[in-house]
Simulated assay, not measured.
Amino acid sequence: MIKQANEHPVAAAAGCDRLRSRRRLATLALLLFGSHALAQPALRVSSQKQSLKILLQAAGELEQVPYPIEFASFAAAAPTAEALAAGAVDIGSLGDAPFVFAAAAGAPIKTVGVIKLKVTPTAVAMLVKDDSPLRGAADLKGQRITTTRGSIGHFLALAALRSVGLHGADAQFIFLQPAESRSLLSNGQADVWSTWDPYTSMVQMEGGTRVLVSGEGLFAGHMLLVANDQAIREKPRQIADFLRRLDRAYAWANQHQREFSKIQAGYSGLPLEVHERSNRYSLPRRIAVGPAVVEDVQHTADLYREEGIIHQSFDAAAYMDASFNEVE
């Protein structure tokens, strides 16, 4: 037995060498690839009703991603802002109004990208029932306005009031999530619903409502891509790559509107026509974080401060990060 065990010392040595070689190769592979993977932790993304995930998936931009992406979904902007502030997500989409609302409350967040939407008569709008006696912004005095606190709908209502010399205190605000606001308008417990697409497209197609005040001229059409400060420090490569993917995905969606609308309808359960209408008019595209965006956010912040919604001065430029401005 002993003789047999020592019968082929050269072969045994060769086997040991091969084993050591394989181990060295495995170690080298770990150093080359494993450490890269470890250096690319997951990017946690939030959007309303999985809208960004649906977009990226439809455009094929979730294929061959060199880092994991974890998606979270919320019904409105406020929970997204809260998740960003708490560090529960790294990046998410917010309108300029909820962004200001969150940043002014101390959330450690910055705008790292911007999606420009075409502002149509119904992209953001204040809606009333067809038989409402209200005919314009001047009629908002004393009316019950339902919207989501800190949302773009809230901003529009304030901007509309101020456009005719009124203030937020001149109307009665009822702050609810969109589905609840819609119900209040329908059952007569609210006089006006201030909201945004796709809700505006949905109720317009259903009939029974009309636009009292449009966001045209009052809303700049910026959707902000917002990251928290820790993610900007620790995940800049993922953020930069993610923004480029979004850029390409929006371009694809604009070129394939019907195909994309069908995919959206499959997720939302809304009629295809709702998404087709929204996509046909909005034509979103990525733009750089620049002076026009800073000016728009500053305008929103100034309005909020004058209305007593935020109480301290707000420097919009301090909450902008232009280091991800590479736009394809």
Rank of each mutant, 00 (worst) to 15 (best):
F175K: 04
A190C: 09
L52S: 08
G188P: 10
V289H: 02
A12N: 14
V226D: 00
A42P: 04
T195Q: 07
R248W: 00
V164P: 05
G308A: 08
A81G: 15
D139G: 10
L166Q: 15
V45I: 13
A190H: 03
D17I: 11
S323N: 08
I232H: 01
A97I: 12
A104W: 10
I115Y: 02
W252L: 05
F101Q: 14
E70K: 07
Y281F: 13
A301N: 07
A240D: 13
E70Y: 01
D296L: 02
A26N: 10
R22L: 15
G188S: 06
F71I: 07
A318V: 05
G215K: 09
A81Q: 04
I145V: 14
A171S: 14
P108T: 10
S21L: 13
A26L: 15
I145Y: 08
S278L: 10
L94W: 01
T80Q: 09
D302K: 12
A220R: 12
I152E: 15
V293W: 10
L166V: 05
I54N: 06
R23F: 14
L117G: 04
N6W: 14
D17N: 03
P41G: 06
L185I: 09
K116Q: 15
E326Q: 14
K110P: 03
A29H: 11
A138R: 08
R244V: 10
L31G: 13
H8R: 15
D247T: 03
A26H: 07
R258Q: 14
E63A: 14
S46T: 11
E70H: 10
E328W: 04
Q298K: 07
S163Q: 11
F155H: 15
T148V: 09
W252K: 08
Y319S: 11
A316P: 06
L28A: 15
L94G: 00
D131P: 00
L243S: 00
R44S: 07
V192H: 05
G106H: 08
N6T: 14
D247E: 08
S151K: 12
S151I: 08
P79W: 02
Q257L: 12
L19R: 13
G215L: 12
L140H: 11
A42R: 03
Y267I: 07
P98D: 06
L28W: 13
Q4P: 00
V211W: 01
A123S: 14
A231H: 01
G92P: 01
L185N: 08
S261M: 08
Q230A: 13
I2N: 10
N254F: 01
A190F: 05
Y67I: 05
V327C: 05
E61W: 00
K129C: 05
S181R: 00
A138C: 00
K262T: 15
L52F: 04
L225N: 04
I91F: 01
Y67M: 01
G106A: 13
Q255C: 07
T122E: 12
T27I: 13
R248L: 10
G150M: 11
A123W: 02
S278T: 13
R233Y: 03
G217V: 04
F175L: 09
K129L: 13
N187P: 00
S278I: 03
A14T: 12
T80C: 10
L303N: 09
Q48K: 06
F74K: 02
T209G: 02
H167M: 06
K141C: 04
S93N: 03
I91Y: 01
L94R: 00
S268E: 04
M1N: 07
L56Q: 07
